[in-house]
Amino acid sequence: MKAAVLKSFGSPLAIENVPDPVPGTGEVIVDVVATRVLSYAGEVFSGMRAYALDLPVIPGPGGIGRVRTIGPDATKLAVGDWVFCDPTVRSRDDAMAPDITLQGWSARDEGGMRLQKHFRHGSFAEQMMVPTENVKRLGKITSDEATQWCALGTLLVPYGGFLAADLRPGETVLVSGATGNFGSAAVAVALAMGAACVVTPGRNDKVLADLVRRFGMRVRPVKLSGDESDDREQMRRAARGPIDCVFDIMPPSVSTNVVRAAIMTVRPYGRVVLMGGVGMAGGAGLDLPYPWIMRNCVTIHGVWMYPPDAATRLIALVRAGLLRLEDYEAKAFDLDHTNEAVAYAAANAGPFKMTVLRP
């Protein structure tokens, strides 16, 4: 089969023929039809992000495809099924605290690296081998629609955060980082889950206005000034009532003051979800007042990715018409032009934009 192979950090991906994957028990082979190229893929492949990858590797986190081969332990899947390949692969020998690797992308720790040595190759290929439990049925779609369904990979991240916070219909949410790629996805997901309104602080007037255009008056934009106290007050006013859940997905470059201003808008007994990158690039960590957390009974959830059943539940939201994949604008490339796709993704990042490979 043809694949894009990362042989060394800092080198272009090599487009070449490699052996077809051979499945064992508990594994499925999927013909890849469409897969996302993340905006920061070039930073991963250059080594700038220092992601844990055992080279050489076929990169690519998850994708959309059709089942080619199933194992003897698969009782619901059938050859030809349209599926989403969930890249969050978990070890099977510790259900309470499994090791995790993002197939074709990065491992979290030493255990994840051991797992990666088997489930190593990702979706920048004509076929990929996926753990049976990571293959999620989509129902009937067309080949053209597979491109749009790649948005699941982006939407799943904030969905995992909101599941951890037990977001309920009718609640008020604040998304810190709403003008970014994952932040704008969080706005869409919160509304699909029944949030009464979503407060969207940010500095990008164009994106804030676009969120209102897409989702209506349930979106409450706030233009940030940079003054922590003033911004916190403006966010509370925009909510027009208690803020039940604050979701943070700010990147590493953002000041901790901005993040803290948003987090401390949450009501007593409210929940905070941390899924952003504060502190990952060095510098000061997030300083939250112990007495404020304790006396207000605030629950803080650190969340990485999402639970195993999240993809199936999110697919149901799409099928119910509550979450619109058509909000995403996609630019597609074939496998021979993978390096061009990586460059395009970096230059054209933003809310509701995708770069997609069509192997």
Rank of each mutant, 00 (worst) to 15 (best):
T154D: 04
N257Q: 11
T172H: 06
K140S: 12
A164L: 08
L208T: 00
M1W: 13
M96Q: 13
T256S: 10
I300H: 07
P359S: 09
A316K: 15
M235V: 04
G139H: 13
K2A: 09
G216W: 02
D287T: 15
R237S: 00
S123V: 10
A284R: 15
D287P: 10
P21F: 02
A165T: 08
V207D: 00
V44M: 09
V135P: 00
P87S: 10
L224G: 03
Y51C: 04
G26N: 09
A52N: 15
E43A: 15
V199C: 03
D94C: 04
G170D: 01
R68A: 08
C197G: 01
C85G: 09
L211E: 00
V83D: 03
G24D: 07
P242W: 08
R90M: 05
G276M: 04
R90T: 02
G194C: 05
Y328D: 02
N348G: 07
M280G: 06
D20P: 10
T101K: 06
M250V: 15
W105Q: 13
P158I: 13
S123A: 12
P21L: 01
E133Q: 04
G47C: 08
A50I: 03
D287G: 10
A188L: 07
V246Q: 03
L163I: 06
G302F: 15
L102V: 07
G270A: 10
V303Y: 14
Y159T: 05
D248V: 08
A178G: 04
E16G: 12
D144H: 11
W105P: 04
P158Y: 10
V356Y: 09
G285W: 14
R358Y: 14
K2Y: 10
A41W: 05
T132M: 08
Y51H: 12
G226I: 08
G122N: 05
K117Y: 03
R36I: 05
R240G: 01
A284N: 12
T147H: 06
L357H: 03
G180T: 05
H301Y: 15
M217I: 02
I263N: 02
V273R: 06
R319I: 01
P221Y: 00
T147G: 03
A74K: 06
L167V: 11
G160E: 06
E16H: 10
Q103W: 05
V212D: 00
V254G: 03
T338Q: 08
L138I: 13
N17T: 15
G202K: 02
D287C: 13
S176G: 09
P12Y: 12
G183T: 12
F124A: 06
S46T: 07
A50V: 06
P252A: 02
N339W: 11
S255W: 10
H121P: 00
V318Y: 02
T154Q: 09
